[in-house]
Computed example of a mutant assay.
Amino acid sequence: MTYTLDQDLDMALALADKVDALTLARYHSNNLQVETKPDMTPVSDADRGAEELILAELAALRPGDSVLGEEFGVHGSSARRWVIDPIDGTKNFVRKVPVWATLIALTVDEEPVLGVVSAPALGRRWFAGRGLGAWATEPGLAEPRRLHVSKVAELADASLSYASLGGWKELGRRERLLELFDRVWRTRAYGDFFSYMLLAEGALDAAFEPELELYDMAALVPIVREAGGRFSSIEGVDGLAGGNALASNGQLHEAILPYLRAN
């Protein structure tokens, strides 16, 4: 069966509603179970439960599609692939910091065409489909609002989010990053999905991270692009292939790249 992007987006938003109910209940529980994965990152029963729910729903609603999830890997081989991070920001989740989200993306021939980022503890959600615009819902709004990146064109006026300095030190690029910080108006480390959503809203002008997985990025790309921004690796290659990311309002991209890429 062939689905339109509108239909896929409606399905993804309905799926996010179901996942939000599960994750929010576990977030507020007193018996959350947390383990350490081989890569030394935490995983909770909420992460696994959320991904299991998504897998079951997709098997019923999009049985011909493949799925890549953070916790349970790849299912199927279709060129239409759903890419899932059940809880982006698990460290926040387990420490009761409300900045975490479920990321749901659809890629077609490895190109992200749809993204949903749902952060129920914040009461906020962002979503986009290629050619459909980028949108956000939040408390107090009767209808979704359309997102647009900022028009800031000078580094001296820019507000940036950089993840953490430790990752940049491991790449040997922290000193160059500090040079960039000296040239801009403001820097913060908002972290995970949130930096990129603030970029799409125009509240930030660029966000970048030194190490990311496909499931960390796939849902972000359509939202950033549909809001008018650019998403590339820190070497300047557009798309998801770099294992890291620079997202910007587009106007600042080329000015920032020299501080992030290898010399």
Rank of each mutant, 00 (worst) to 15 (best):
T2D: 15
M11S: 14
V19A: 12
D20W: 05
D20T: 03
A25T: 14
H28M: 11
K37P: 01
T41D: 00
P42C: 03
E57M: 10
V67K: 02
E70P: 00
H75E: 06
R80Y: 12
R81V: 08
I84H: 05
G89D: 00
K91E: 01
F93H: 04
V97G: 03
A101Y: 01
A101H: 09
T107M: 03
V108F: 09
P112R: 06
V116P: 04
A128P: 09
W135E: 08
G140F: 09
R146K: 14
R146C: 11
V152C: 13
A153F: 15
E154Q: 15
D157L: 11
L160C: 07
L160Q: 10
Y162M: 12
A163L: 12
S164N: 15
S164A: 15
G166V: 13
L171W: 13
V184D: 11
R186G: 11
G191R: 11
F194Y: 11
Y196F: 06
A206P: 07
E213K: 15
A219K: 00
L220K: 04
A227F: 08
G236Q: 01
L240P: 01
L246Y: 07
S248W: 09
N249L: 06
E254D: 14
E254M: 11
Y259Q: 05
L260I: 07
N263I: 12
